[in-house]
């Protein structure tokens, strides 16, 4: 954005004071995250879009194929959400009681009690989606060519005995109800943490795939199903990824520094001092309230 271009790079640390970080602090916190959570790594992105105030190889952070076993939208039907934060009189962030229940839910699907009308709604939606998929194969609008048209004779002439045929493992989706219609597809997300120069905070981008359908890219509406409904389309919108190009879901950073400041204060009141190194680990912790069903890795428990 223009505002971002005109904002000077933050040089002095504003971490304690305002909850904001400099690019150097972003790098330090990123190195710390990568060290403690090996599923995260630095990425360079498109070199023509690289930011000069960040090292070439450390433009942003990425973790791939994070499982998302169920839809946030469904979780909220069971009413496990509560409002915990009310940041300075503004509309509060909504969080969910998700602690520990990811594992339990695998063994105990009945925990996800949906009332019948909701089940019907989802079932109807699944059916109509399936119908779409069957009739149009890959493209919703039916504009794409039929891939079978590309079949060629002669390509199978070379028999190759050295190819291992791997049967796709039929992994039972843990969240299925008795009826086959309401199988919840497992999705995977790629998460990206970008440095936002204007807000001087991390900026989370995410993009999702349907794991059960050959890693097909989710539609925007589908991705919004995995965002806490109070944040969907408000704090979470489609935004162009500054290092890659295409648009992805992004958690708007306007409130990050305030929340971070709050965390620092709470820690101080408890006699602890938060180090700027832990910034991203804390950040991921509070962002979890926006995307409660996406199980990304954070290995450290921060006690506040």
């Amino acid at each position: 954005s223009v505002a971002e271009q005109l904002t000077p790079v933050l040089k002095e640390s504003k971490f304690k004071e305002c909850g904001r970080i400099t690019p150097e602090e972003f790098i330090a916190a990123g190195d710390h995250l990568v060290h403690h959570c090996p599923t995260w790594s630095w990425a360079a992105g498109d070199e023509t879009k690289a930011k000069s105030y960040l090292p070439k190889d450390k433009q942003f952070l990425i973790t791939k194929n994070v499982p998302c076993l169920r839809r946030c939208k469904q979780m909220e039907f069971s009413g496990v959400e509560r409002i915990v934060e009310d940041v300075e009189g503004e509309e509060g962030w909504v969080t969910h009681d998700t602690e520990g229940d990811e594992d339990e839910s695998n063994e105990n699907p009945s925990e996800m009690t949906l009332d019948n009308s909701k089940i019907d709604e989802i079932r109807a939606k699944n059916e109509s989606q399936n119908a779409d998929n069957n009739s149009n194969d890959e493209d919703d609008e039916g504009e794409a060519m039929d891939m079978e048209d590309f079949e060629e004779s002669g390509m199978l002439d070379n028999v190759d005995p050295s190819v291992a045929i791997i049967q796709p493992v039929e992994k039972k989706n843990p969240i299925t109800s008795e009826s086959d219609d309401s199988i919840v597809h497992t999705r995977t997300y790629d998460l990206h943490i970008v440095y936002n120069k204007y807000y001087q905070t991390p900026h989370l981008f995410l993009i999702g795939y349907d794991k059960d359908e050959n890693r097909k890219l989710l539609t925007v509406e589908e991705m919004f199903e995995d965002v806490s409904q109070d944040n969907a389309k408000k704090t979470v919108t489609m935004e162009q990824h500054p290092h890659l190009g295409p648009s992805m879901l992004a958690v708007h950073p306007c409130r990050h520094s305030d929340l971070m400041k709050k965390f620092i204060q709470i820690a101080e009141e408890g006699g602890n001092e938060l180090s700027v190194h832990s910034y991203l680990i804390i950040f991921l912790k509070f962002v979890q309230s926006v995307i409660p069903t996406i199980n990304y890795d954070y290995s450290q428990n921060i006690t506040i």
């Binding site: 493209d139 060519m145 590309f150 079949e151 993009i207 890219l217 925007v220 992805m248």
Partner: peptide, 10 residues
Amino acid sequence: LPKMSSMGES
């Protein structure tokens, strides 16, 4: 057979 990706959404 080849594959096809629809990128309209993004």
